[in-house]
Amino acid sequence: MGTKLIIDTDPGIDDAFALALAALSTDVDLLGVTTVFGNVSLEATTRNARRILELCGRPDVPVAAGAARPLVHPQAERAAHVHGEDGLSGLSDTLPEPTRALEPSDAVSLLVSLLEAAEEPVTIAPIGPLTNIALLLAAHPHVKPKIARIVIMGGGLGTGNTTPAAEFNIYSDPEAARRVLVDEDVPCVLVPLEITHRCAVSTAWLGELAASGPLGATLEKLTASYQKLYHDELGLDGIVLHDAVAVAEAIKPGLLRTEAYPIEVDCGHGPARGATVADRRPGRRAGTTVEVAVDTDLDGLREFLLTRLAGTR
């Protein structure tokens, strides 16, 4: 089979699209899904992840719940105003009930067992706060050789979406993000706001998805809160599928063009808390670097997402 993948997620509407993208791709071996607090509570993110997998006909994929809060400080802000109180525009209860039980182990234990059992390196795609991944790397460093790369949706090189400086996933647990992006030596790809916003999809794109069949129609309905937010605040007739862009790169390496930069994460308590700072000065790239996504074929990426989610590839 193709890419061996584990997704760590906090659904969230764009997370739902990202999960569906992986679950429906025939060239992906989706080994497991772990959940984390973030857009809504851990209880809600876990429920949403399991229901999305059931919607996609993937009860074979194990799901384990992880961190309910950040490593050090309380979560400053959730995103119910973006995703709806239940994380899915108020429609979570309309999705099919999971037929597979939640794993009795926690998220980090599931990650360890899946990595240890893997016969080849596995890609991990964290598309929520990085708390589970920081805990994994800190407590179980022996699994690092089993990780092909960590493809992260998070950060912004010049701006934020939760504060002027910080993107939501990083801002939700800066200490965890710093552990993963700065202190570790596992290959990482960072997919920041600059590229995800450029990959926004239109209402016409969403209409094509809805017309593709019942599953596409269900996914499109979940975007109600999202569409209103982007229309009211940004004047966009469409949505930004942040997390699906990162998972697309996890599935198909090289879909996004990257450049290697040292990254720092601000863990202070001033106005820059949660900022991701890339050192882009010439000749300053010694030491640990992160591959940062900077460009892509926009139409090609949108077509990749649509054909996979519509089940035509």
Rank of each mutant, 00 (worst) to 15 (best):
A107R: 09
G238I: 12
G235C: 06
V40Q: 08
I7R: 08
I195D: 04
E77Q: 13
V294F: 07
I195G: 01
Y230C: 08
G287I: 08
R50L: 00
A65I: 00
S172T: 10
A166Y: 07
L306M: 07
E54N: 02
G311K: 10
E184Q: 01
G283P: 03
I147P: 00
E194V: 10
A44M: 11
T94N: 09
E208D: 13
L206R: 09
R285S: 14
P174Q: 04
L229R: 15
D266S: 02
A79S: 15
V72Y: 06
D266E: 02
I239V: 15
P129I: 08
D10P: 06
L102H: 12
N169F: 06
D183M: 08
A210D: 11
G12D: 00
D86M: 00
V151E: 02
L137I: 05
E249V: 12
V277A: 12
V189E: 03
S25C: 11
L236C: 06
E208I: 10
I127M: 10
S41T: 03
P121D: 01
D185G: 14
A210H: 11
G66R: 12
P145I: 04
H242N: 15
R284M: 13
V61K: 00
H269W: 14
A80N: 15
E103F: 02
Y261Q: 12
G254L: 10
G238W: 07
G274R: 03
G160Q: 02
A68S: 15
A250P: 01
E249Y: 07
L88H: 01
S202Y: 09
G216Q: 11
V180L: 06
T203I: 11
V245F: 01
P253T: 08
S105G: 13
W205D: 04
E175H: 15
A16I: 01
V245E: 03
G154M: 03
D295K: 08
A65S: 09
L102P: 13
L255D: 06
P11S: 04
D266G: 04
G90L: 05
L255Q: 10
D237M: 09
E167Q: 12
K228A: 14
E249R: 04
V247T: 04
L30M: 07
L5K: 02
I152W: 04
L115W: 02
D27R: 12
I147W: 00
E264G: 15
S202P: 13
E303S: 15
G274N: 06
R78Y: 10
A200Y: 14
R178Q: 14
A107W: 01
Q227T: 12
G238V: 10
I150T: 01
S225I: 08
V292R: 01
A20E: 03
V265W: 04
V182N: 06
H83M: 05
V277T: 09
H73L: 15
N161A: 10
P126D: 05
A18D: 03
S25A: 15
D60H: 05
P59C: 13
A272D: 10
H83D: 06
T163H: 08
V186E: 01
T223G: 08
L137T: 05
H73D: 15
T289A: 05
A139R: 12
D15V: 06
G156W: 00
V186W: 04
V63W: 02
L229D: 14
L5D: 03
V292Y: 00
S212H: 08
D232K: 12
S202K: 05
V290T: 07
A310M: 07
H81M: 10
V36L: 07
T196R: 09
A18M: 05
V61Y: 02
R58V: 00
P96Y: 04
